[in-house]
């Protein structure tokens, strides 16, 4: 039980980030779709709106698919993704715990992204709906 070098503390930080892959992708997803939808709707307000609306829906569905796939991939290819972020495996005796919570978080994030994507299927892109 000797002290460890600085590397292991950075790796520790990396492992924390690895646990959070799902929610981090979720936040990127929300930023992308909300940002692009607000921007396109604002630009399109006065002109012919159908083209802009189609663009909005396309972007949302595409972003949703990509993000869900990315999170799904990370939840399956645990070691690869962890090595990518933190260089190396998580500590062996912590593996079970870390992987479990990472996967459940990934699942919840996928659900949340799916919910958001659902809106784009049901609702028009830019209308105030009032």
């Amino acid at each position: 039980m000797r002290r460890m070098g600085p590397r292991s503390n950075l790796q520790g930080m990396g492992t924390l980030v690895f646990i959070l892959v799902g929610p981090i992708v979720w936040s990127v997803h929300l930023t992308v779709i909300y940002g692009s939808q607000s921007l396109l709707c604002a630009l399109n307000l006065s002109e012919d709106r159908s083209a802009g609306n189609a663009a909005v829906v396309t972007i949302i569905l595409f972003a949703t698919a990509v993000c869900i796939a990315a999170v799904g991939f990370s939840a399956v290819r645990i070691r690869f993704v962890h090595a990518l972020i933190a260089r190396g495996d998580p500590p062996a005796d912590q593996m079970g715990f870390i992987v479990t919570i990472m996967r459940i978080l990934a699942g919840l994030s996928i659900l949340a992204m799916f919910y958001v994507g659902l809106g784009a299927v049901i609702l028009p892109a830019c209308d105030q709906l009032r």
Binding site: L118, G119, I122, L123, P124, L129, R130
Partner: peptide
């Protein structure tokens, strides 16, 4: 909720 919201489309 989405369906009810969509029903508000003028």
């Amino acid at each position: 909720g989405f369906v009810i919201l969509g029903a508000g489309a003028s």
